[in-house]
Nucleic acid binder design. Structure first.
Length: 792
DNA sequence: GGACTCCGTATACC
DNA sequence: ACGGGTATACGGAGTCC
């Protein structure tokens, strides 16, 4: 493999790298007869804009002047981690002598660039990576899952509470071994000692759990402290070290505590599941059992035990609970086998530990590849450019209503293809490695994909699929990196150029489809929904049609069928529903399926959409009548009308923002405050609305879901009836005024009849060109681009 | 007091 | 320690008549 991608050091079978002192790293290698380790010197370093800031620094250090004219022109190295931090403080002091605004921490120092992960530093400077020459299955992985006693009257088990305790520790591994440490015959202290012995003796590379960071590990550590045992499960007999709580940004943000175990890796399936779903968005929640069912590896005959019944099972039916735990372990193992290989194969390329690759964002990964090569070639590096990207993907809608048949086509790797064909790279990237990196990754991916398709062995197939998807993850990060305001090699003009090309290609596709007799319904970035010309009515014909379109596009651009459907309900941009040939309905978009919509609203909308797609207007009316009645008669369950929202801000941030008037009060936060529920960002809260006026102020009339009492229901019926009408309003544009009122009403005088009711289809736009020109004008692009567009 | 606008937040799409 | 822009919905607060 190309050294740009894999680093310059080809050492194989490294399973872990951890600091063994403040001046050395321990490199753990798997040999046929077990793990060996080796101590390697390590020189911590940072980049500096001018050597004057380190002038007269008293401790031993090296300053290397780098090639080229980029901003960070000096590489400063030290013989220990502590001395590097001394140097950082020294630089800060020197900087503050003349600075108008003083820096309080290294992160505020514009003149220094430092990554404070010692393992990443070591891997970058040595060119090593983990796992070279290994397959995912070579890793020795253990799954752990504990069940705990909770003091009577409490919902959550708390390791700090003496009356709570660990009841069961279930263990398993990827070699088929299973073991249960049962609290029935053992004291909790004995259980913990046995656990430590097993981990040491079996010497696992990876420890996996669902929510292991926020529950399992902190729980075990706290109990060990209570019994004054060292939880010494590191390969060097050290205890897990917690490190600063960090925010992980997906579309949801959450706070989590992290731990490191020397010589081993921690994989939290809860966390990698969320990362996975950030792009796929197919999961309703992130519980282990839901994920296992969703992906289809839950055992058919297994039992599930609700958290509030664990105490009872621990006391009365431990065998049932134990089987349940082992089934959970099996699901953790499967979930990891589904999601981790992608991370594993990226770790073969990137200068990070396994767990770090799982945690880091796309941008940090690309940047690490660039920096590793800049360090190797002793070349200066730029600082981030402050200008920002001005353009984004092209979205448009041409019809609303019910349409079909539908072809859902997307451009294969739109942005990466443009970057390669236009040879786009950051203007500060003077070594010229951005293009070769992207080019090589693309070639490697095509190779892996070909192998995936041609090897007969399903095991090998899965391996090559994981490899190609690791490449894909990296390839897709290049564009985002260019527009990221804190990336060292960012280039907003380059990002805009890519997007502009994307607009142009999409426009060509739309025009071609229309010219060839198809009708485009909706477009988003690299995806087109259209109805093909009438004579085309099966998949091979549709594929042929795509090939015909391709002839009108530049050679690098390929259109693929992403899906085909009987019908589409087109509502708004990014909001639609599809009826498959298997009669399944898929609903997309925040205004149709948002998670924070009350459940009755989601189900009502879903029922209406099904009715519309099945041409069954009677069903649509039934939905309205049904929910109207359920609400009015207080027959909805709490979970049907309660709203569940994430609290993204801390209580301090929220209160401060409200006080200073920069944000409004919101029911979710007010409920938590009123009910004295402490929260951290990322926690969820469920609540409902009270009162009898439909036009309430939400934050003054809300109650915690837990406070609702079925004997004294106090949900605001008038408000929820109004909500139902608001949901119904989404369908207004599909009917004439009279029809709409007939369908969405409960008039007992007449029996509803769908006869004569028509679903309306509306053409939104007839001209494609003017929309795009308008967009270009609004960003003041020179007329040349408009002329280019006209000529095509 | 309703209709309207403005704004920040939340969620989702690619 | 944190990829990007685009889009819709909603609730609260202010303004106008």
């Amino acid at each position: 493999m190309n050294q740009l991608l894999s680093g310059s050091n080809q050492e194989e079978n490294i399973v872990a790298v951890y600091p063994s002192s403040d001046r050395s790293m321990r490199v753990y290698t798997r040999k046929t007869n077990g793990i060996t380790s080796q101590e390697v010197e390590f020189y911590p370093f940072f980049f500096l804009s001018s050597s004057k800031f380190l002038k007269d620094f008293p401790k031993k250090h090296w300053i290397k002047e780098l090639n080229g004219n980029n901003y960070y022109r000096y590489l400063c190295a030290f013989s220990s981690w502590l001395e590097m931090w001394d140097a950082i403080r020294y630089v800060m002091m020197r900087y503050n002598e003349n600075a108008s605004t003083k820096a309080d921490s290294y992160s505020e120092l514009p003149i220094i660039h430092v990554r404070t992960d010692p393992v990443a530093q070591f891997l970058k400077q040595s060119g090593r990576t983990l796992f070279k020459g290994m397959k995912f299955d070579d890793l020795h992985r253990m799954q752990i899952n504990i069940k705990t006693h909770t003091k009577h009257g409490f919902n959550l088990s708390n390791p700090h509470r003496a009356e709570d305790r660990i009841g069961i520790i279930a263990l398993s591994d990827n070699r088929g071994w299973e073991f249960v440490i049962n609290g029935k015959g053992l004291s909790e202290k004995e259980m913990l000692i046995e656990l430590i012995q097993i981990i040491k003796q079996k010497d696992y590379d990876v420890i996996e759990g669902h929510n292991i960071y926020n529950f399992t590990l902190p729980y075990l550590l706290t109990r060990c402290e209570m019994f004054e045992i060292d939880f010494a499960i590191g390969r060097d007999d050290s205890v897990p070290h917690p490190f600063d709580k960090r925010l992980s940004y997906t579309e949801r943000s959450l706070d989590y505590s992290s731990f490191e175990i020397s010589g081993r890796h921690i994989i939290d399936t809860f966390q990698i599941l969320q990362t996975y779903d950030a792009s796929k968005r197919s999961l309703e929640n992130y519980s282990l059992n839901h994920a296992a069912q969703h992906f289809g590896f839950a055992k058919k005959d297994r039992a599930y035990i609700q958290p509030d019944r664990i105490n009872r099972y621990l006391d009365d039916e431990p065998e049932t609970l134990i089987q349940c735990c082992l089934d959970d372990n099996h699901e953790i193992c499967q979930l990891s086998e589904f999601l981790s290989p992608n991370i594993f194969y990226m770790t073969q390329m990137l200068p990070f530990n396994f767990g770090t690759v799982a945690r880091l964002g796309a941008s940090a990964k690309i940047e690490s590849l660039l920096l590793r090569e800049y360090i190797r070639q002793k070349h200066s590096i730029p600082k981030p450019d402050i200008s920002s990207q001005t353009l984004g993907g092209y979205t448009d809608i041409f019809y609303t209503g019910i349409l079909g048949p539908i072809v859902d086509a997307d451009v294969e790797s739109l942005y990466p293809s443009i970057m390669l064909s236009e040879k786009i790279s950051p203007y500060t990237e003077t070594l010229g490695i951005f293009q070769p990196l992207l080019d090589e990754l693309t070639k490697m991916r095509i190779n892996a994909k070909r192998k995936m398709e041609t090897v007969p062995d399903p095991h090998e197939k899965r391996k090559h699929d994981a490899i190609q998807s690791a490449f894909k993850t990296l390839i897709n990060s290049f564009y985002g990196y260019l527009g990221y305001n804190r990336a060292l090699f960012n280039d907003s003009k380059a990002a805009d150029q890519i997007v502009r090309n994307g607009h142009k290609i999409l426009k060509q596709i739309i025009t071609t489809i229309t010219d060839l007799g198809g009708e485009v319904i909706e477009v988003d970035t690299d995806r087109v929904f259209f109805t093909p010309p009438q004579n085309i009515n099966n998949e091979p014909e549709e594929k042929k049609f795509l090939k015909k379109i391709k002839k009108h596009l530049q050679p690098a651009i390929t259109l693929l069928i992403n899906g085909r459907y009987q019908k589409m309900l087109s509502y708004k941009k990014k909001n639609y529903a599809l009826l498959g040939y298997d009669s399944k309905v898929k609903i997309k978009g925040a205004s149709l399926i948002s998670r924070n919509m009350e459940r009755f609203g989601r189900e009502f909308i879903q029922g209406c959409i099904e009715g519309l797609l099945q041409d069954d207007i009677g069903k649509v009316h039934e939905q309205y009548a049904k929910y109207n009645k359920l609400i009015f008669n207080r027959q909805l369950m709490l979970s049907d009308f309660a709203r569940t929202e994430y609290l993204r801000e801390s209580s301090d941030e929220y209160n401060k923002a409200v006080e200073t008037g920069t944000r409004n009060r919101a029911a979710s936060y007010e409920v938590a405050i009123k009910s004295n529920i402490p929260w951290k960002p990322g926690d969820k809260v469920s609540y409902y609305f009270t009162g009898d006026d439909p036009n309430i102020k939400g934050f003054e009339n809300c109650k915690l879901a837990d406070e609702w009492d079925s004997n004294f229901p106090d949900e605001n019926i008038q408000y929820y009836l109004k909500r139902l009408d608001e949901f119904a309003k989404k369908f207004e544009e599909f009917f004439s005024e009279n029809d709409f009122h007939a369908i969405f009403s409960v008039d007992d005088l007449f029996v509803f009849s769908p006869k004569g009711i028509k679903i309306l289809t509306t053409r939104i736009k007839s001209e494609i060109k003017e929309v795009i020109e308008e967009k270009y004008e609004s960003i003041h692009v020179e007329p040349k681009i408009l002329l280019d567009d006209e000529s095509e």
